[in-house]
Amino acid sequence: MSRKPGLSVRLKLTLSYTGFLMVAGFLLLAVMWVFVLRHLPAYTSVDGGVLIRSFLLRDFASAAAAVLAFLLVFGLVGGWLLAGRMLAPLTRITHATRMATNGSLDHRIRLPGREDEFRELADAFDGMLTRLEAHVAEQRRFAANASHELRTPLAISKALLDVARTDPHLDVTALVERLHTVNTRAIDLTEALLLLSRADRRSFTRERVDLSLLTEEATETLLPLAEKHGVSLITSGDIAHTAGSPPLLLQLTTNLIQNAIVHNLPERGYVRVHTGLRSKSVVLTVENTGEQLSPQLVSTLTEPFRRGTERIHSDQAGVGLGLAIVKTIARAHDGKLVLTPRPTGGLRVSVEIPAISRHAAR
């Protein structure tokens, strides 16, 4: 944004200090005049002669002018130095801002001294830089991983076609099946990336939603998958009204339940789905049996394309964006996602979203 040049803040503060000092000096001299000098008689006898009032007032005026001139110079010099000292933290903050604008996000102000408005601003700016640096690093990892994930099916397709071109006796039916599988995975990955981008931008219309109904719909849809894996689905809970995007919240619920079904015990596993109400929020909890998970592994499961060992070799590996999409959708709805490993194995996932009253939801 282009602006016309103007006075610096330091100069403005200097002029303000000087003006205040001059006004204070003028008022002090005026008080002396009103309460002292104006009441003097025309002639006053003193030792050695007579003091004439007009001469005294003339001397007072000369002294007052000298005092005001001194206050002017003192105010300008002292105000300039004082303003420079007071604005020194702002100079450091401006320097750090320019460095951040040029792409240096690892620089921190770390302003010393006791807490005041400048220190509070500097600490807030340092915190913003920390979050921004982490976000940029996450976006770079995401871009690199997305490029790798998208390149993989394309490379496989190219290899299959190269083989088919050099082998006249290749089974065309098998080739088509493999290409169909690879292309389906690429399409699923692209759709997941688009969904993730849409949720992250919050480009959706908020509507009144009953989370318990979405849970029932997702459970019914995934029931055949649960039966295929020998997993029991257990649902319970209360009516949970919130404001958000029904398709995105349905995707969130579906991803959580599908993830719990696929990454479960080989047999006799179960998934518990519960919707509950708190004072100002609704909570969706999905809990499943499964292998023992370390807290360190669980803390990384919401990163895009992050998979455990069992996910890489599973037929239901997915595209590695399931929990990342859940986290993004929850954040887009001003909610939070919490993952906790179960002591007996498996995972407990809870999503908390701000609630709306049942009366408002009608």
Rank of each mutant, 00 (worst) to 15 (best):
E352M: 09
D167R: 14
F142A: 10
S2P: 05
E177C: 00
L132I: 00
D238Q: 05
I257L: 00
K327M: 04
L105H: 09
P168R: 13
H95V: 15
V326T: 06
P168V: 01
L339A: 12
P343I: 12
S350K: 13
L15T: 10
L233I: 09
D188Y: 04
A317N: 10
Y43E: 04
A317H: 11
L189H: 11
S357F: 07
S45K: 14
L72S: 09
R268N: 14
H229G: 00
L214Y: 05
L15V: 15
E177G: 07
L284N: 06
L265H: 11
L194D: 13
P168K: 09
K12F: 06
G237Y: 07
L87A: 11
F204A: 02
L225K: 06
R307W: 02
H169C: 02
F20I: 15
F60M: 04
L7W: 12
V9W: 12
V326Y: 03
T242R: 04
E216F: 13
K12Y: 04
A134C: 05
T181W: 08
T215C: 12
S203C: 08
L121W: 07
V273T: 09
E133I: 06
V262T: 13
I156G: 01
F142S: 01
V172H: 11
R165W: 02
T101I: 15
D106F: 02
E352G: 05
V31N: 03
F118K: 06
A355T: 04
I109M: 12
P5R: 06
L11D: 03
V136N: 02
H333S: 03
E191S: 12
T184G: 15
H241G: 01
Y270R: 13
T328Y: 05
P354C: 08
V326F: 02
L150V: 11
H107A: 06
A355Q: 06
A63T: 05
S197L: 15
G103H: 14
D171F: 10
R198V: 03
K228T: 10
G308C: 06
A199Y: 03
H148D: 03
A164V: 03
T254F: 08
G78I: 02
S232N: 02
E191G: 03
E133G: 15
F20S: 13
A64C: 01
T190D: 05
G308L: 15
G113S: 11
L81Q: 07
L213S: 11
T219S: 10
L297T: 15
